[in-house]
């Protein structure tokens, strides 16, 4: 059943700006560093001997913010397809289960976010090479900084998708999302258990992979909770 559902989801989001946003997020994150390095390259080069690590760190300053904002925007956009045209009833009257509808939406969103992570890796690498940061390109760290935040932000994705599909008034999930962005931005001084801190890959043990594990676990839990709750609600 998932195949046709995924195809319909991809059909419905045509010309809605998903690809544009998927490109814009990672591009914006790297473009900020283009401005940053363009304006004060010499100063930034003096900051650290390991220029690649310092550069990756600078890029990663903005990745969590862009990612959390991107999740808020994409989930709201995804839900607005049915919300705007009152199409939930139509969709649910088809011979599909609510679980698989929810799963297909989650899958499509994950796909776009993964694509964005991949693009982030490509853009980061290209601009890093352009900056001539040194011969030893840290490919492992590059991949880590590009893909770890995605896995660490799965709980936020699950939460925002749930909020976006159950509230008709999209102001509420969006306001919740803005709240989350603020928590992500100030996560340096926040406790480790807050899901909005995880995309920053910071924790008390200095082990970014922990955030990935927590993200996968809590992401699954929140996803299942959201799916069950969605299935039990009346179709509006």
């Amino acid at each position: 059943m998932m195949g046709p559902l995924l195809r319909t989801e991809f059909l419905k989001i045509k010309r809605k700006g998903f690809w544009l946003l998927t490109f814009l997020g990672p591009f914006g994150v790297v473009a900020l560093q283009m401005v940053n390095y363009g304006v004060r390259k010499d100063y930034l080069f003096q900051q650290s001997d390991d220029r690649w690590a310092y550069y990756l760190h600078n890029v990663h300053d903005f990745t969590p913010l862009a990612l959390v904002l991107g999740i808020v925007i994409l989930t709201s956009l995804m839900a607005s397809i049915e919300n705007e045209t009152n199409a939930w009833k139509q969709l649910m009257s088809l011979p599909v289960s609510k679980y698989s509808v929810y799963l297909s939406k989650f899958t499509v969103l994950s796909f776009f976010l993964l694509a964005a992570s991949f693009l982030l890796m490509v853009f980061t690498l290209l601009y890093g090479i352009f900056l001539d940061l040194g011969p030893d390109i840290p490919y492992a760290d590059l991949a880590r900084y590009s893909f770890y935040p995605f896995f660490a932000s799965l709980p936020v994705l699950a939460l925002q998708l749930w909020a976006a599909v159950i509230f008709r008034n999209q102001g509420i999930p969006v306001a919740l999302g803005v709240f989350g962005v603020i928590l992500t931005y100030s996560s340096y001084s926040l406790p480790d258990w807050l899901i909005w801190k995880w995309p920053t890959l910071m924790n008390g043990w200095n082990e970014p992979v922990l955030n990935v594990l927590w993200g996968l676990l809590a992401g699954c839990a929140l996803y299942v909770f959201g799916m069950i709750d969605f299935a039990r609600r009346d179709v509006k």
């Binding site: 914006g28 862009a66 904002l69 709201s76 956009l77 607005s80 705007e84 999209q170 102001g171």
Partner: peptide, 13 residues
């Protein structure tokens, strides 16, 4: 824009 997401994207950018 009809939805919340597009203005938010402009805002975030």
């Amino acid at each position: 824009f009809k939805n919340f997401a597009a203005p938010l994207a402009v805002n975030a950018v």
